[in-house]
Design a protein around this nucleic acid. Structure first.
Lengths: 187, 187
DNA sequence: GTCTATAACCCGATAGAC
DNA sequence: GTCTATCGGGTTATAGAC
């Protein structure tokens, strides 16, 4: 299962064959097909694992020692940057990759992808909500959270293509400047 | 050729078989392989067509009747929104889709993807440069252009997953607010 | 240059013994 | 529940006549 999760993140869904999963997991075809009706059901399990792992596996490590809600947003983005660096900009967000890889996804798959995005956005939205009156009242907290997501996903996409963190860094720097200006506007 | 371009945009590269291309183009295998060594070379030709088409096919229509450099940025983003709407949010930017679909792209493919992003960014950067002193001096025009690209690509990604333009609209609205605040800051 | 037929390969999934 | 062998189908690319 975690073999599949790793392989999907590295190679994508379509490029990962069932044989690849079997070899990485050290199991045989019969075993896998005993637990999963097919390959797509493995993907569903992986996407469900990501969804349930948002808080314990993603946010908790990123926010360790970071209490300020606004800093938490950028601490999370910093995690993705580190992920880019450690993989030499070969892969970033597995959800985003799979979301664009599958052009006609099964409704169940698409629902889990959307749920993963929604979970991420809600967590960041909560940060901006907790920022309270540090942000202007009329700023849509949820839209700002979605903006953070699109900045991360777009930054990962371009950085992966360029094999440099430059685009990611530029985008995050601009987002930081925007949030700073919003905070200055309220003073 | 344009059959391949269309199919790659609709179904992606891997999911488009050579047989699909042959059928859509109304040609036979022998003809295609007479001009192209292999499927990847068709992709290279398509990516090259996108690159050379940035100005005549993408920017020119988007900027028709729009003279203001800042408005041109959002007029271009509006084109992508319309693309999402007309396809019921099933596909947005073909370059971004292919960029995330291919996890270990051939260097030539990756170079053309990067060139497409770079061409897009340079055009938008030029808009922000032409905006002159309407933007603060210390604002990095190129970084701002990259930010516009990541906003578009990230917005398309999430909107495609959600089958709603909401995420795209939220992201672009935030970008617009940022640019507005930058313009206000200079007064 | 264009056509048809097919080679060579890999895929997901299954059958059936144990 | 787990194993091995294999099926049926789709893939890219090629061979060879015209």
């Amino acid at each position: 299962m975690y073999a599949a999760l790793t392989l999907f993140a590295q190679k994508g869904y379509a490029s990962t064959s069932v044989a690849d999963i079997l070899q990485a997991a050290g199991v045989n075809a019969g075993s896998l097909y005993h637990f999963f009706p097919g390959k797509q059901d493995v993907l569903l399990a992986v996407l469900d694992a990501y969804l349930r792992g948002i808080h314990p596996m993603l946010l908790a490590p990123a926010w360790k020692g970071v209490a300020d809600p606004v800093e938490r947003v950028f601490a999370l983005l910093e995690r993705y940057r580190e992920h880019l660096v450690t993989t030499e900009c070969t892969y970033g967000c597995p959800i985003g990759s799979i979301a664009l890889e599958l052009h006609e996804p099964d409704p169940a798959v698409r629902a889990l992808l959307a749920a993963n995005f929604a979970g991420w956005v809600s967590a960041i939205e909560q940060c901006f909500i907790e920022a309270g009156d540090r942000l202007p009242d009329d700023v849509d907290r949820r839209a700002l959270a979605i903006f953070a997501l699109t900045t991360m996903e777009g930054g990962v996409m371009v950085s992966r293509t360029d094999r440099t963190t430059d685009a990611f860094d530029d985008a995050v720097r601009m987002l930081r400047d925007y949030v700073n200006r919003l905070q200055l506007a309220v003073r």
